[in-house]
Write a protein that binds this DNA or RNA. Structure first.
Lengths: 174, 174
DNA sequence: ACGGGCATGTAAGCGGTTACATGATTCG
DNA sequence: CGAATCATGTAACCGCTTACATGCCCGT
């Protein structure tokens, strides 16, 4: 149910259409919680039927701009403060590591090199984003500061995994 | 499809029943890829019907011990070496951070304190496990070394998130 | 002998993805 | 005006979770 509440959160910032929200999701939270447009459009319909969001405007090709209702804003806050945090992690690359013994040393070393590359790249992307936010490129609203914190998490987690891959690669002394 | 291949991987190590595999999964990969017993039993049935695993023994209460077949072992190796790694992350706690601006400074500070505690605890658990493995408490097989690598990842990711929460909490200067 | 946990399993439902479909707009 | 892209939506499927069901084994 995370997408649901994230949509309410985004709409609490400013009204937006399904498309806007899809891009917003992708650019700010894609690294930690992907959500495709089919899910977003579907969720918006449900949220509207429950009157947690309302239609604010109509645009060109059936574009529907939603805004959060009072009930909706109350619901996000309830989620943030009262609903237990879900700490579930699903990291396929780590799952794979439990079976590294089935790979040849060479395959493994190459695999770990590619993994390190990948994580370094993602970390760098979010590092740039974080630096841009620190420079004030996105203003200095409370919302921007929150996204800055999310970006920091992306940087730290991906850095940690990059370092892990390098550490593991050294263990193969290849 | 990760559970599927993880089961093949575990069975490549030694034959086991659904129950054995459930506990094995939980104790070694629970932190990075949870899998409940209904999923595991179901997957075993499918793997058996595809002849990737075979029945090796029957025990007390309908206990069925499976072992991997040649085709099964080939399939895990194919997965490890040829199937693209899925880097998808789903970290609800980071998703939430994008909406921290909807929380009061006090709520937020307390929230981050609880988060840091949580991650520290998980990291410590896997640190202990890793140290036990380094002491040789689980022998020194290739399989153990792989699980050691997985444990290291759990330590590093959870440490990173604990430090992140503390960093964010300092930003609230609360 | 019986109560509580062990071990196995099934069924329904849900969140999320993939694939498909379609009209609107913009640009060359 | 036609092609490519924008934007919106639906339908089917799949992995996974939740809830339920059941028999077996062990300790007291």
């Amino acid at each position: 149910m995370s997408v649901r509440h994230a949509l309410l959160g985004f709409l609490a910032e400013e009204p937006a259409s399904g498309w806007d929200l899809t891009r917003r999701f992708e650019s700010t939270l894609g690294a930690v919680w992907p959500a495709g447009h089919p899910q977003i459009y579907g969720e918006l319909r449900k949220l509207h039927s429950e009157q947690l969001i309302e239609i604010r405007d109509h645009g060109p090709r059936g574009r529907t701009v939603y805004g959060v209702t009072e009930a909706g804003e109350k619901e996000v806050k309830r989620w943030l403060t009262s609903v237990e945090v879900d700490h579930t992690m699903r990291l396929e690359p780590i799952l794979r590591s439990a079976f590294f013994w089935l790979m040849s040393p060479q395959e493994l070393s190459e695999h770990l090199g590619r993994e390190a590359d990948h994580y370094r790249k993602v970390a760098d992307t979010y590092r740039d984003l974080a630096e841009a936010k620190d420079r004030g490129d996105f203003g200095d609203s409370a919302q921007t500061r929150s996204l800055r914190i999310a970006a920091e998490a992306a940087v730290r987690v991906n850095d940690a995994l990059a370092q892990w891959a390098i550490w593991a690669q050294e263990g193969t002394h290849g």
